[in-house]
Each structure stands twice: as C-alpha cells, then as structure tokens.
Write a protein that binds this DNA or RNA. Structure first.
Lengths: 337, 337
DNA sequence: ATGAAAGCGCTAACAG
DNA sequence: CTGTTAGCGCTTTCAT
C-alpha cells in the first residue's frame, strides 16, 4: 500500500510537503505541486482515513441505527440520508437493531468505537426509562438526530418526525365527513410511540366531531399485513357494526382489506378502509388505498440538515412535519341503512 | 474521552496490561484482570477502533455500494447483508451510486480510503470495458462479491446472482402453456445485463416452443411503473395483437396492467400479464400479479457467506440462484377468438 | 505476569 | 515555500 513517505522519497521532498499538496494547502510551489500530484496519481496513492482521523480527530462518519432497513418507511429515509450524507462528505454506517435492545446497544457501541461524529437513531421501544447506552452517546459528544418520536431517555436530543396524530386525525376526519359514525381502529404495537400517537389522533378527531370512542371498536393489530388480517377477522367475528376501518398503517389496512375481499365483501361498499403512511404501491393495491402521505424522504432530508447544523455547532430545534390526506378508492360514504 | 493510559494510571499498571486485559489475552493475573475490568467499565471506556485498526491493519469494515437503496430488490439484499455482517462482527458502510459512474467511483474510493476489508458491489452499467476504480480495488486486495451479473471489468471477482434467464424463461413458458402464442415483451434498460438476460430467457423459451420471436412484439420500457405504462400504451397504439404481456420486472408489469385498467381492459381476460422479481406487495396488486420469485434475501445471505470465506482466504466460486414461478391472478388462457 | 520501546500513517505546530 | 519534531491511541515485539 502506497504511503505518503513513499511518494515523498520518490519526489525527493519531505512527507509534510506531500501531505500539504494532497490536501490542497496553500504555500506550495506550483512545480512541486504538479510533480507530487502526478506521482501520487501514478503510484495509485489512496489516503489512509484511519490515520488521518486518528490525528485530526474527525472521522467524517455517521451512523444510522434503524430497527429494520426493509421497512418501507425506513427505506425512504435511508435513501435521503445516504444521498445527502454523501453529498456533504460523510460516510454512512448502517446497522439494524431488529427492535431488540441488546442488539441496538451493540450497534451503538460499535459506532462509538469508530468515533462516529453523529447518529441518526430510531430508538427501540422500551418501557424502562433508563438507557445507559444513550448516556454513553451523550458523554461521547456525538451529535444525535432522532428519527421519529422522542422517548424519555432521548430528552436531550433533537428529533424530526411526521405529525402522526395529525395524520391519523385527518384520516378519521375524512371518514367522518363521508358520513361514517362507527369507525373501527386497528391499532399498532402498544409500545410504539408512533402507533400511540396515531391512535390519539383518531380519538381526538372522533371527540372533536362529537362521536364517542367505543372500546368495542378498537382492535389490537400490529404492524404487518398478517396482523391486519387477524384483526379484521376478529372484528367481523364480533360483528361490531362498523362501517369504516382505520388502520394504524398501510400494511395493516391492506391486510384488513384483503381479508374483507376474501370474505366476499366489497370496498368501499361494505367497508371504507383507510391506512396511514402512503407506502410505495399502496396506490396499486387491489383497491387503491386512501391514506395519509407522510413525507419520509423529506424527513430524511430534514434530518441531514439538522445533523449538518449540529456538526457546525449551531443550535437546532426539533421539527414536526405534517402529512397530507390522499383520497383514493378505498373510502366512500357508508351504505345506506 | 477515556484512553487506555487513563485506566492504566488509575489502576497503577502499564498500558500494556490494560490492553491485554481488555482483549482477553491470557497470562494476566485474576486480580489485575478484575480490577482493570471494573475500572474500564466504571470510567466508561470505549476502545478507539481507528487506533486499533491502524495498528492491527484490520478494520472489520465492509462496504456496500448499491445504485439505489430504495429499489425493492436492493432493500431485501441490504436486509440480509446488514444482519449477517453484524453477526460476524463487521460493520457495513452503505453508499449509493445512483447509477452514475462518477458517483460510484467516489463511493468506492472513499471506502478504499477507509481500508474496508471487502466490497459488496452492484456495478453501474457501462459500455466502456475499462474501469480504473475496479483495478484499484483489486490492487488494494479488498475482497469483492458482485451482487448480480458480472460485467467484463469484474472478471476477476466472484458473483452471486439470480438466474435471470431461467426466471424469465419460466414466466414465458407459463404463458405458452396457457395457450398464448403472441406474447409481447416489455424490455428493460438496454445497458442492464440483468434486463438483457431476462430478454434472452424470454426468447429462448419462445424458440424452444417453436414460436418465432416477433420484433413487432418487443417494446422498450425501462424499470419503473411509468415506463411500463408508456410501453403498454405504445403497444395498444400499434395494435400488436398480443394476448399476453411479459415485463422485464414487476414494476413495469404493474405499470402496463394499470394502463390496461385505465383503458377499460380486463386482466387476464383481455391480456395476461406476468412480471419478474416478486417484489413486496406484488401479490396485493389490483390483480395479484403472476411473477417469478427471486430469492433476494437468500442472495444476500449467500453473498455474506462468500465474503466470509474470502476473508478467511478460501477459494470461492460464483453462484447462480434459481427463481420459482408464482402463479397468481394476472395470467390465464387467451380469449377464444 | 508485567513493562518499555517502537511504530502503524498521518498532520499540527513550530522553525527556518 | 519547505522541513523537523512530536504525537493521535493502540498493539507488536522483546525484555524482565
């Protein structure tokens, strides 16, 4: 592997001169500059980032710790993070917590060992309000942008998130406006703050419209299509007399809708179905899905912007991004009678 | 930031002793071991991976350079890579070439500067058979696993890929078996080897069945749903008298199908449509899509396995993974007459 | 079982 | 404009 010394020897100059040339420092004669440049090129020199970092204490490395990169939402965010981090000269270390605390801890600690300058975090849901790893992150002085809701142990960090409650509220309001009065809710994981916020948005919208929130219309689902199918089956089993179904996310909504189809029901004739998130292909669903678009790519862009500001030492405040209702074919007025 | 020296001073031992304890080297008295361990823990010591790497010349870092992380296929692969790389103690550096040569070069060169031990690569299509960056990779001795087809300039690397020709052949054979004789093909980007292979598979299947390959049935599409819609519109405009449409991938197939729906046509009554890839939610499409499942997650697992072997210095040979036809609702017998 | 010295490849600080 | 010295935090090597 070619080092600075090797070039220096070849060029008959000191290591420092070579170092300066390759870093475009001023105060180098044009002659040596071109000579050294040519030599470096020709010898195939590639700087050793570790040596540089060790000396300069700047790694230009950022970590993204995410529960699951295959989650449609995470993917859009990663797209933005990766693009922009590259553009401002940072490399991105990606690791998955798989929603397990022990694994998240390892991911974070490994990144700390690499002295990453910043973290994009999507903390694993936990009941325990203490989180020693997060304290370590703080102590190391790494900049942190939380993607999504901010759990108690992340109080000192900034975050950027979609306004989940608002989004779910818009979805519910849309159903109410169509004339629905009995709107079932297929809820998400009880430990997920995002899911909780969406539920809260649903409840607020109902109350605002003067409708009671009937516990008999709340069904525990989860995050996946399978979860949605199960919850919908349970709902039909309990003959809850709902005319519309709001799901915590698009996957659950699509699962519920699929079960309705399997039972010979029609959408939106028999049930209106609304999701949340506007994942790719939700518009291509068997019934194009009415949902709330959440600007996940924008969220990623905002996160990078905040990270840049943090790294420049600026004050940064948290951000809340609104979603927009996308009305497609899965919602309509309730059946007369 | 706590260093080994700091712990050494506190413990009243040498740096070496601390280093040895923390690396679980033998020949350390139980007493010092526990004392140093406790101190390190208590002081919040986190090793400096750069210093370690600089000294040991092992970075435990692997790069994944991919055109676009949001591509449904790339996502499944990343899922596997990230999971398994973590499990065998490697961190993953992810960067996107966005299918641009200049950007790919930067991504690779940055990774080289970080002295990554290996690369997972999805080379950007190029006509130029020379690729200087790839020579650099070779010179640096980084291990490489190519994900997908192997371009000429990657001759010296191993690769793992889905058998695209076989997959497309199965799709075509399925249509032929249903009785279709005029099968249109919506092709992908002409520079994409994977797309070429799929086209080749389609042609071979037709010839094998004694059908002529009619150039009038080949339509240039691309990779996206929009591309599929345009190609389908063109096909209808030319009244090509096809009874079935095979697309280079699921997105294009879904685009074509969407256009057919928009024109009031029915699937599979008026046209059978088959895709390739089995992307998530292709089963939830307006007509559940018949396609060829390609084991992208398995492909990722295989890639990591090959990487591990390469890093152990073993001989590794390239692999070709088969796909399996998934018959759903978008294909059926051609309309009588 | 422990320590001292040297150096991985680079750059900050100072000297000339 | 260029060079010398020192040191980033760690581990290898050799000595004790």
């Amino acid at each position: 592997m070619v080092r600075l010394v090797d070039i220096a020897r070849q060029a008959g100059v000191s290591v420092m001169t070579v170092s300066r040339v390759l870093r475009d420092t001023p105060d180098i004669s044009a002659a040596t500059r071109t000579r050294v440049r040519a030599l470096a090129e020709q010898m195939g020199y590639v700087p050793n980032a570790m040596a540089q970092s060790l000396r300069t204490r700047s790694t230009r490395l950022i970590a993204f710790v995410v529960p699951n990169v295959a989650d449609p939402m995470a993917t859009r965010i990663l797209l933005a993070l990766s693009e922009r981090a590259h553009d401002f000269g940072r490399d991105l270390l990606v690791s998955q917590s798989l929603n397990r605390l022990d694994r998240e801890e390892i991911c974070i600690r490994r990144a700390l060992a690499r002295r990453v300058e910043g973290f994009f975090l999507q903390p694993v849901y936990r009941l325990d309000p203490s989180a020693p790893v997060y304290d370590e992150v703080r102590r190391h002085g790494a900049k942190v942008v939380v993607l999504g809701p901010k759990p108690p142990f992340c109080e000192s960090f900034v975050n950027v998130q979609a306004d989940e409650a608002l989004a779910a509220g818009e979805a519910a309001a849309h159903l109410i406006e169509l004339g629905h009065r009995r709107i079932a809710f297929l809820s998400g994981p009880p430990t997920s703050p995002a899911a909780q916020n969406r539920f809260e948005g649903y409840r607020r919208a109902l109350r605002k419209a003067g409708l009671e929130v009937d516990d008999g219309l709340i069904f525990h689902a989860g995050e996946s299509m399978e979860d949605g199918m199960k919850a919908a089956a349970q709902m039909l089993g309990e003959s809850a007399s709902a005319t519309a179904v709001q799901a915590v996310n698009d996957q659950v909504a699509m699962g519920a809708a699929t079960l309705f189809f399997d039972r010979g029901l029609r959408i939106p004739r028999d049930f209106s179905v609304v999701g949340c998130g506007n994942i790719p292909f939700s518009e291509c669903f068997r019934v194009p899905l009415t949902t709330v678009r959440q600007p996940k790519y924008q969220l990623g862009l905002a996160a990078v912007g905040m990270m840049q500001a943090l790294l420049r030492g600026e004050e940064v405040s948290s951000r809340l991004l609104p979603g927009t209702l996308v009305v497609r074919a899965s919602t309509g007025p309730p059946r007369a009678g």
